[in-house]
Amino acid sequence: MSKSEKKYGDHLKLKKLNSIIKKNNCEKSALISTLLDIQSEYNYLPKEALIMVAKEMDIPLNQIYSVATFYKVFSLQPRGEHIINVCLGTACHVRGGGRIIDEIRRELKLKDNGGTTEDMKFTLEPVRCLGCCASGPVIVVDNEYHSQVTPKNVNKILKKYSDGRKVKKIIGSQDKNA
């Protein structure tokens, strides 16, 4: 373990991390909530943060590791700048959600139905149903919903994010240029 890790990683804005852990009074039942908050702050679960959670909340590190790997939302690896959630709920599936994810994978050159691009621009994370079944297939990029996506307009949506331009919501059937 490096020196910095021993000190729980100085780069982690310690004060912030501390306040996240303390927010839930270190109650053991708040472990999942605490990890969710840490992930939303740092975009993933840094190892040093988990070590600190173990110490402050008095929970064995192996238990924290088992929780962090059991629940799908947690990532132990740094994630990309933009998070793409592709809905793979049943309604989106029967409307062709599988083809959307295939197309995104192809565009981003990702091997699996998930993962981060080499340039750390995008992380693809499929989710099981966002409950927007009327608008399927749905993808969410950085918390913005795009409905009625077709393989054809995937490229267009991704391009807007990778260009870093302000993105206007693309709605399949209503997007006149699609």
Binding site: E27, K28, S29, A30, L31, I32, L35, L36, I59, V67, F70, Y71, K72, V73, F74, V127, R128
Partner: peptide
């Protein structure tokens, strides 16, 4: 945190316990 099985009541309770 994204686990379908947690809808099952005993799994849900374990999850509440952290």
């Amino acid at each position: 945190a994204g686990a379908f099985v947690c809808g099952e009541e005993t799994a849900l309770m374990a999850s509440i316990e952290g």
